[in-house]
Design a protein around this nucleic acid. Structure first.
Length: 495
RNA sequence: GGCGCAUUCGUCUAGCGGCCCAGGACACCGCCCUCUCAAGGCGGAGAUCACGGGUUCGAAUCCCGUAUGCGCUACCA
């Protein structure tokens, strides 16, 4: 009877670029499993390829995770008793384990130069053979080895892969997968500069950090047998291996820059809500049942299990994300929405245009309830309401004239509107609406035409938030000025 | 080329031998609501379950081939 071991999962990105939507979705699944099982979610940084490190990417990774609410229990800035969690700070550990393999004869030093390796591979390719290390250094005689050693040549440590037989392992999603040793290489464990490769570092760390489930993209499945062999060489127990399908772009290739936004933080810039992105990403490769699509964070944690994961790659469909984002926007309390909108207005320069925060806030607060169900992204608010923040608006005068009316008729109606607004002692949207509806009734004008003309006069647009809420937010003076201007446009000889 | 994985509406997916001549959602189309645009409601179109063989009384579901797509094939992860 073995005690149930704690679930410990990790997200182990390389700081070689900004966090990509595909990687982050892997992080999400790891995080969800940890939270569902009451386990631990670990962030480990795999920075063993110094040449490829991109400055700022570690920070971006952490910002992205935090924005999405994927908090880590152990890792950079969180601590933990299995640290350090940055591989560049664990070099001596990997060297020690490489040494152990060397002594056990499960690995060997290779003195081949990269030039020789390149030539060898070119020849193999020319002969239509699979490119593979020819194991020259594996079978060096003692004297040869000593000579090389004495010459002070640089060396790498390679794993002595069994030459015959097959390694079989179980992938949680796909079942048994087998690889013949003949197709495996004697891959490098320790590079000539003493740094480990991914293969060594990740296996050593997963073991030392007591990782229970390795959930990663399925591009790793072909290196899984090497990892299994390494575990065996060390005499360690295997974690549960879960290879999840990749996310593809619209053209069915691996998601990349060509497909538009792929960095998580770009989604924030574009006005997506983290709750929408989390929900959406969870559905890329996971489903609860035949109908449920909307999951808040708690529900996701409650329902998430590995056995509901799918095994075929998903194509990222922005349309559905947009729909879902709109749903979550409508879900927000208006005050909360207004607060989240503020930074976008600031970014767009509208706060400054309105004369600073104290004048911008009330406008945003007033109009937000009316644009809430008209947005797919937070950034949509800008275009929907920019006319509220400026003194002058510009539009084609012809837009003023509704279908079925002419300029004269329109000017007359706008003058009536002017009088109504001047006479109004209550500028609330409800009161204005009652007033204008009564007027439409009395004159026999269709609301569509009458209101449409006013809408363009006041906003410069044919598509805008509800008219009377708009006028209320605008205020009497500015509304009058704009309608006056419209009348002038209609009656001036140039039109 | 070799090895591996995958294959259900355009897209995300449900389906784990009979409930399926395949269900839901996005997108699309129509109608309703309506001051525009949305949101919302109702309805529609859309998948010979990649193809070909088996197994079975019965297959989208199991087995074998083929095709296609994707991944890996570095002193990168």
């Amino acid at each position: 009877m073995t005690a149930k071991t704690e679930v410990r999962v990790r997200y182990a990105p390389s700081p070689t670029g900004f966090p990509h939507i595909g990687n982050i979705r892997t992080a999400l699944f790891n995080w969800l499993l940890a939270r569902h099982e009451g386990g631990r979610f670990i962030l480990r940084i795999e920075d063993t390829d110094q040449a490829r490190i991109v400055p700022g990417s570690l920070q971006a990774i952490m910002d992205g995770l935090r924005w999405l609410g994927l908090d880590w229990d152990e890792g950079p800035e969180a601590g933990g008793s299995f640290g350090p969690y940055i591989q560049s700070e664990r070099l001596s550990i990997y060297q020690q384990y490489a040494e152990q393999l060397l002594e056990a004869g499960q690995a060997y030093r290779c003195y081949c130069t990269s030039e020789r390796l390149d030539e060898m591979r070119a020849e193999q390719r020319a002969r239509k053979e699979p490119p593979r290390y020819d194991r020259r250094c594996r079978y060096l005689s003692a004297t040869e080895r000593q000579a090389l050693e004495r010459a002070g040549l640089p060396w790498v440590v390679r794993f002595a892969t069994p030459e015959e037989g097959t390694t079989t392992f179980v992938d949680y999603l796909r079942g048994e997968i087998a690889f013949e040793h003949a197709v495996l290489d004697d891959h490098v464990l320790l590079k000539s500069d003493g740094w480990p490769t991914y293969q060594l570092a990740s296996v050593v760390d997963d073991h030392l950090m007591e990782i229970s489930h390795v959930i990663r993209g399925d591009e790793w499945i072909s290196s899984a047998p090497r990892h299994v062999l390494l575990y065996k060489a060390f005499g360690w127990d295997l974690p549960v291996l879960v290879h999840i399908p990749l996310i593809l772009g619209k053209d069915h290739s691996k998601l990349s820059k060509r497909h538009g936004a792929v960095d998580v933080l770009q989604y924030r810039e574009q006005g997506y809500l983290p709750e929408a992105l989390v929900n959406f990403m969870a559905l890329l490769g996971w489903a609860l049942d035949e109908k449920t699509e909307l999951f808040d964070r708690e529900r996701l944690i409650r329902e998430f299990t590995l056995d509901r994961l799918g095994k075929n790659p998903a194509i990222f469909d922005n349309d559905k994300l947009d729909w879902m984002n709109g749903h979550y926007i409508r879900q927000l309390a208006p005050a909360e929405l207004a607060a989240r909108l503020y930074p976008y207005y600031e970014q767009a320069g509208l706060v400054a245009k309105a004369g600073g925060e104290s004048s911008a806030r009330p406008i945003i607060d007033a109009i937000t309830p009316y644009i809430q169900e008209r947005m797919k992204r937070l950034t949509d608010a800008i275009e929907l309401t920019d006319f509220l923040f400026t003194d002058v608006i510009q539009y084609q005068p012809a837009l003023l004239v509704p279908k079925g009316w002419d300029a004269v008729q329109t000017a007359t109606a706008l003058q009536v509107a002017l009088a109504e607004i001047e006479d109004a002692d209550d500028m609330s949207a409800a009161s204005l609406e009652a007033r204008f509806r009564a007027k439409a009734e009395a004159t026999g004008w269709k609301a569509g035409q009458f209101f449409g003309a006013i809408r363009v006069a006041v906003t410069g647009k044919t598509v805008a938030p509800p008219l009377f809420a708009t006028i209320e937010a605008l205020g009497r003076q500015r509304a009058l000025a704009r309608i006056n201007h419209a009348v002038w446009l209609l009656t001036s000889p140039s039109v």
